[in-house]
Nucleic acid binder design. Sequence first.
DNA 1: CGACCTATGTATAACCC
DNA 2: TGGGTTATACATAGGTC
Lengths: 141, 141
Amino acid sequence: MYRNQVNYALIEDASKRRVSYNKRLKGILKKSDEPKTLCDVEVATVIYGPYRNEPYTFPNNDVVQNTFIKSKELPTLERSKNKVTREEFTMQRIKKLEEQLQKVRKENRVKEMTNEMYEVFNRKIVLADMNPSDFNDLYVV
Amino acid sequence: MYRNQVNYALIEDASKRRVSYNKRLKGILKKSDEPKTLCDVEVATVIYGPYRNEPYTFPNNDVVQNTFIKSKELPTLERSKNKVTREEFTMQRIKKLEEQLQKVRKENRVKEMTNEMYEVFNRKIVLADMNPSDFNDLYVV
DNA sequence: CGACCTATGTATAACCC
DNA sequence: TGGGTTATACATAGGTC
C-alpha cells in the first residue's frame, strides 16, 4: 500500500498477494506480541485463509480455545453485544475516513488556490515586463 | 517506542500504559482487518488484560469460530442474509473511502510539488533580473 | 520462497487541550 | 478521558538476488 498507490481491495496477482500476506502476517504477529510486554495485555491471533488447511493460532491454542469456547457459551444477549461492538468499530472507521477525506480535500483546495495565485502572479509579471514591440515575435498558433 | 527510545518493557506509568494500550489495540485491529480485504485471509484477535472483565474477540468472526472450534452446535449458523449484505455494503463503503482518500492525497502531493516549483521558479526570476548594483540596497540582517 | 534494499505510508510516544 | 498534533520509528510494496 506504499511504494505505489495500491487499491484497498483484493490483490489480484496471486503471487503478490501471497507475498503481501506473508509480510503482513509477520507484522501483525509482532505488533500483537508487544502489548504483552508493554501493557500487560495478552493478544492472541487466529489466522484462517487459503494458505493453511486449518486456522492456526498465536501464541498458543489453549488461550484461544478457552476464549472462543467461553464466547460460545455466552448468552445470546452478550453475543449480540459483541456484534454491536464490532459494528461500532466499523462505523467509527468510516467516520474517521470521512473526516480525513474532508481534511485532505480542504488542504487540496488551499494548495489549488495557491497555485492559481502563482499563475496569476506570473502572468502579471510577464505582461508588465512586455512592451508592444514584443508582440512582433508572436505567430498565430 | 518512537519519539524517544522506549524500553521494550512494561510501561511503568499506569496512565501512559493504558493510553499506549488503547492506541496499540486500535492499530492492531486495523492491521488485522486488512488481510481479509487484501489477501483473502481472515484474522481474528483475542484480547485479554486488566482493562476488561473477560477476554474478547475481534471481529468475533463466526466462520473462524466455527471452523476452529469444530462444533456443530454453534448457534451462529442462523446468520441472516440481511447481516451479510449489510456488512458487504459497509465494507464497500470503507473500500471506496480508502480509494478516495488515496486519490485526493495523491492530487495533494502533486499540487504541493507544483507550489514548490513555482517558488523556485520565482526565486530564479528574481535573481536573474537582478544585477550587481542591486545589492547596494542590501543590509545585513 | 526468503533475505535484503529503498522509498514511502503508517503507527505511535509525547505533547497539548 | 479522549481528541488532535508533531516528530520519529516502524511496516511494507516493489524490486533484486
